[in-house]
């Protein structure tokens, strides 16, 4: 009898303790949670909500129109053009800049001297303001005095007006995108290469994997797996966000050939003030980025088996 009472009291005080701990935990996590809602989840929810309305920027009233914006969007040729251009841009810049980045990183790593110099040189475009650099690229791509066409002329190729030709404008922008992100990838890959244990190369040599290709295939490539996944996903997200070169150099033209998602969203939302419609485009954009992020979380966690 007395024992039960004691056990009850003990149970009660334990429960009280647990409640107190939960309260403390909530209190400590509170500020971060609050900011998370205020800065991330709140705006995102607002955008999703706005995409179901016909709200115009500055208007005092709005009407719920359900999936009206989406229906309009999916029926609009400009949207499909813009989505396709974005995907083409991503499909060009991601593999090119990742493979080139890996190649340059391997070359720099193989050199014993001046590694710091090359690292800095390749990283410069990342730190430079892309809008300022875009002006430089406009000069480089100039049909008559541009360096690109001058160089091509030396080998007998007549280059056109890269940024004004609907057939080449998107590719010219992709080239700038590769140039800009290459250094970022080089630096990440260099860090990845530095973390490959030297002993593994020795073990591979003793095991018979001592040609450059076998070393790469047996040790470097698998050990770079986590870095590679990270670089791929980051690059994909960054490429999806392409905007500044389009805005400065082509404004989506000529003839919508460089219209990309974020630029379409920008013109709809901030030129025509159709905030509801722009929100719908943003939701599509968010869906792509979110998918990539989830992919990264999933695959990366499963593939990182190294300690």
């Amino acid at each position: 009898m007395a024992d039960t009472t004691r056990a009850d009291t003990l149970e009660r005080s334990r429960g009280r303790l647990r409640r107190q701990q939960a309260l403390t935990a909530a209190g400590l996590a509170g500020p971060a949670t609050f900011l998370l809602f205020l800065l991330l989840l709140g705006p995102t929810t607002a955008v999703v909500a706005l995409s179901f309305t016909d709200w115009q920027f500055g208007a005092k009233s709005l009407n719920l129109i359900g999936l009206g914006n989406y229906a309009e969007m999916f029926g609009d040729r400009v949207f499909w053009r813009s989505l396709r251009n974005t995907l083409v841009y991503v499909a060009i810049t991601v593999p090119t800049s990742v493979l080139l980045g890996l190649g340059f990183a391997l070359l720099i790593e193989a050199r014993s001297s001046a590694q710091g110099f090359y690292r800095t040189v390749y990283f410069l475009p990342v730190t430079a303001t892309l809008i300022a650099m875009a002006v430089v690229w406009e000069f480089l791509f100039h049909p008559n005095i541009g360096l690109v066409n001058l160089l091509l002329g030396l080998v007998g190729i007549r280059g056109g007006h890269w940024l004004n030709n609907p057939a080449t404008a998107l590719y010219a922008l992709a080239a700038i995108g590769v140039w800009q992100s290459l250094g970022f990838n080089v630096v990440l890959f260099l860090a990845g290469l530095k973390s490959v244990p030297r002993d593994l190369y020795d073990a591979a040599a003793v095991d018979g994997a001592d040609s450059a290709w076998e070393r790469f295939r047996r040790v470097t490539w698998p050990m770079l797996g986590p870095t590679l996944m990270f670089v791929l996903v980051i690059m994909a997200i960054r490429s999806f966000q392409v905007f500044d070169t389009v805005a400065v150099l082509t404004s989506g033209g000529p003839n919508k050939s460089t219209e990309v998602l974020l630029y379409t969203m920008y013109t709809e939302g901030f030129t025509y003030f159709r905030s509801g419609y722009a929100s719908a485009i943003t939701v599509v954009f968010l869906a792509f980025v979110l998918t990539l992020t989830l992919l990264q979380a999933r695959i990366l966690d499963r593939r990182v088996h190294y300690t």
Binding site: P197, D199, A203, A205, V206, D210, R218, P222, H305, Y306
Partner: peptide
């Protein structure tokens, strides 16, 4: 090294982290 008919065990073990134990032994 692989033509010298030797095998080496390293201080850090130097196992291939992406291969299973069986894969490490088979390589």
């Amino acid at each position: 090294p692989n033509e010298r008919d030797i095998a080496m065990v390293f201080q850090s073990y130097a196992l291939y982290p992406h291969l299973t134990v069986a894969g490490n032994l088979a390589l």
